[in-house]
Write a protein that binds this DNA or RNA. Structure first.
Lengths: 188, 188
DNA sequence: ATATAAAAACAGACAAGTCTGTACGAAAAT
DNA sequence: ATTTTCGTACAGACTTGTCTGTTTTTATAT
């Protein structure tokens, strides 16, 4: 009964909060066990190391992102509406969490020599977004060549990542709103 | 004779390398003094704390960035050529340093509760870039309203920051090349 | 339902090492 | 002669991870 244990869930809840607020390195094992209300021995029964916690966290967080985003898109038409929802979701998260930037880029930037497996999870996540963009761009009324689709997707990815960075510098949603408007124009 | 001391310069050279390669937190005082070939007492004679080293590093690095970028623009016409040089310089740096992203965003993302003074230095730097963009956009032959200038600058900032993030994920210059092309098109 | 066996979570001490920053007197440079 | 740099020992607090033994929970058998 290790898989559906409550220890794992409590640890994940805690690190989801702490890793985002403080960063991975600034969060110690002792703080994790204290705030999860879990014994140290129990934690190490579930995760062999702090690195393993990070790995599990990234897997959970990317999955959570996708499911919440898909929820966010419910009721929205495919095409431009879904693409714009990407910016709406980013804004929603940024406001909720105090403009500290993208969870995943944060990890990559904090640890330039990141574990290969961890980077893999993040790349897969970003690939999911890119694919979603391309599919939805292809659905738009104005017909575009594959090359044009590719280029527009690239541009929206840049806008998306760029406004995330910018909003964390300014600690405001201004750049996200702005990026959304620009994207809207590009999608016409 | 503290200002033109060699200790300060050697420490700055070392941390410029180490902070970028490993990150600030992962770089210890002991590693700094060892690789700078400086005694610990000497280091603390020049910098009251590790935080102070970070502050001096950010000031030096932003100043260095600007002077090197201006060197990079020498011989280039004002307007679109200068704006595109921003991407060329980013590519130059990214290739040279192994695609670990923007120096300054790295610091912001690594330490979400960064010192106010340190954040100030970074914001000033990013403001410098934005101002440079607006000035050069205004010089372009196709006349634009102030609002259009503002919006185009915003877009190029996003492209610039976005491709920096993207290139560090992919560990390649592809996204920088791509962003440059898109910028070129937008500037027509 | 109740007794028993097995699994899981517990609290906390401890090891072994890291970290930043201070203090000392000696050596070197100006 | 005065300032700077040096080497190094040290304090004190922190780090991750291990280990021990106890208590609680869960599953099974009667």
């Amino acid at each position: 009964m290790k898989a559906n244990s409550k220890v794992r869930a409590r640890v994940m809840d805690t690190v989801t909060r702490l890793f985002y607020e403080q960063g991975f390195q600034a969060t110690g094992i002792n703080q994790i066990i204290e705030e999860s209300e879990v014994a140290k021995a129990s934690l190490y029964e579930h995760f062999p190391s702090k690195e393993a916690i990070l790995q599990a966290y990234l897997e959970d967080a990317t999955a959570q992102w996708r499911s919440e985003f898909e929820e966010f898109c419910k009721g929205k038409a495919a095409g431009d509406k879904t693409i714009l929802a990407l910016f709406d979701y980013r804004k929603f998260l940024a406001v909720k969490r105090g403009f500290k930037g993208c969870t995943f880029i944060r990890v990559v930037y904090e640890m330039p020599n990141l574990d290969k497996a961890a980077l893999e999870v993040i790349l897969r996540h970003k690939e999911y977004i890119r694919k979603m963009l391309k599919e939805n761009i292809a659905l738009l009324p104005s017909r575009r060549s594959p090359k044009e689709v590719e280029e527009l997707a690239e541009m929206i990815v840049s806008l998306y990542e760029g406004c995330g960075v910018q909003s964390s510098l300014e600690r405001s949603a201004r750049s996200i709103d702005s990026a959304r408007k620009i994207a809207q124009k590009l999608l016409e």
